[in-house]
Each structure stands twice: as structure tokens, then as C-alpha cells.
Simulated assay, not measured.
Amino acid sequence: MEVIVISDPLYFKAEARLINQLFEAGMPIFHLRKVGRNRADYAALLGGIDEDYHDRLALHQFHELQADFPLVKRLHYPEQLRKELDAKGLPSPSGNDVLSTSIHHPDALLELTRFEYTFYGPVFNSLSKPGYTGIAEADAGFTLPVKRTGPKIIALGGIDAGKVNAVRAMGFDGLALLGAVWMDKEQALNRFKLIKDKCDSDD
């Protein structure tokens, strides 16, 4: 099962080094999402990530930085931005660009013809945002439709090593990690490896 890591929303010391270590440990895709959207800091963090991994980076903000980092081919459109731009005609992928987005209800899948995958959640109660109730907490029998068209659906919200099997049983194509990795940065690498190994061994 596919594993995606989303960045800590805030910047922290030696962040680029830890991101590089996560890539070295087998992280397939990394989503760069920051609160505050300071372009200079965002670009500086991008510059600290080894170019060998740039094709596995997805930008949530400052898509125009592709001009400065041409190896970055993944662009993420958060749900609100997607809705704002949809009436104007959201850009289609150019060249090898890969587009992703976010939804909070399966019905929205019908709107996502341009996207390779979408985050869907919160699935469980959020680890990083207390008070965000997960879908699975409200509906213990929740599963995605077996037959569906459209982008891959990636589970997001409250996912740790103990919930990998539940995510698979719900019919998701993969999972995204945020709080499980960043809540304890000294253990971020070990936590990621544990979850990645569990996803790989259950395939």
C-alpha cells in the first residue's frame, strides 16, 4: 500500500536533513505544505532537499517555484483552491506533471478528472489537530465503494502503525502520514520505517 508523508506545517531546525533521511529510508512521495506561506523560507527548504528527490516532491504552495526547481513535477491543489480555480479552468498537467488534491466526501470524486490521486479524510481522529473527528469514528463500518473510477484515494488523518490494516480494509489505495511522523521528531525516522514496513509486508 502506498505511503505519502506530509510535512510538518511549521518549519523546524534541520528539517531538510530529516526529509532527506526519510527519502533515503524509502519515502516514495513527500508533500510540502507550510502554514504562513513565506515564499523565501519555502524556497530555502526546497533548496536543502537533495535534487535526486525533487521528482518525488509535491508543492502545496508557490507552484511557480517549478521555474526555479524544474525537477519538481508534482503540484497539489487543496480543496478550497481547487474549487476557486475550477470555474476558471484548473490547469491540466503539462509534460510529466502530476496533480493531486483533497476531498472530504466521496461524491467529490466525480469532479476530479484531472488528478492522479486525492487525500480523503480525516479518516480517524486527527493526531495533529485535536477535535477533528474521523470518518471511521463516526461510522465504524465505513468502506469505500469497491467499484469506482477516478483518482487513487489516499487516507489521511489519525493514521499510525496500528491503523494500517484498518485503512486497507476500508478500500483505500494508500495512506498519508502527518502527526504520526512529526509529533516526536527524534523518532520521526523510526516511526516512518515502522509504518512503511507494515504497509509493504501487508501488500
Score class of each variant (00 low, 15 high):
residue 53 Y to A: 06
residue 180 A to Y: 10
residue 55 D to F: 10
residue 160 D to F: 08
residue 133 T to P: 09
residue 7 S to M: 04
residue 154 I to Y: 08
residue 103 I to R: 02
residue 35 V to I: 15
residue 81 L to P: 10
residue 174 G to V: 00
residue 167 V to H: 07
residue 113 T to H: 13
residue 8 D to R: 11
residue 198 K to D: 14
residue 34 K to V: 00
residue 104 H to M: 09
residue 100 S to E: 08
residue 142 F to H: 00
residue 12 F to G: 04
residue 91 P to M: 02
residue 61 Q to G: 11
residue 164 V to T: 05
residue 118 T to C: 07
residue 142 F to K: 01
residue 188 A to Q: 04
residue 189 L to C: 06
residue 151 P to A: 00
residue 47 G to I: 01
residue 199 C to P: 11
residue 82 R to D: 14
residue 172 F to P: 05
residue 70 P to F: 00
residue 112 L to S: 06
residue 122 P to Y: 07
residue 126 S to R: 05
residue 6 I to R: 02
residue 171 G to S: 02
residue 159 I to Q: 07
residue 160 D to E: 10
residue 61 Q to D: 15
residue 44 A to K: 14
residue 28 P to R: 01
residue 156 L to T: 04
residue 158 G to F: 10
residue 190 N to V: 11
residue 103 I to T: 12
residue 33 R to K: 06
residue 114 R to K: 12
residue 17 R to Y: 09
residue 125 N to R: 04
residue 191 R to L: 10
residue 140 A to K: 03
residue 112 L to G: 05
residue 149 T to C: 14
residue 70 P to A: 00
residue 34 K to C: 02
residue 24 E to G: 10
residue 158 G to I: 10
residue 197 D to K: 14
residue 180 A to G: 04
residue 107 D to N: 12
residue 202 D to T: 15
residue 106 P to V: 03
residue 185 K to N: 03
residue 75 L to Y: 03
residue 186 E to R: 02
residue 191 R to P: 13
residue 3 V to F: 08
residue 145 P to N: 01
residue 65 L to G: 01
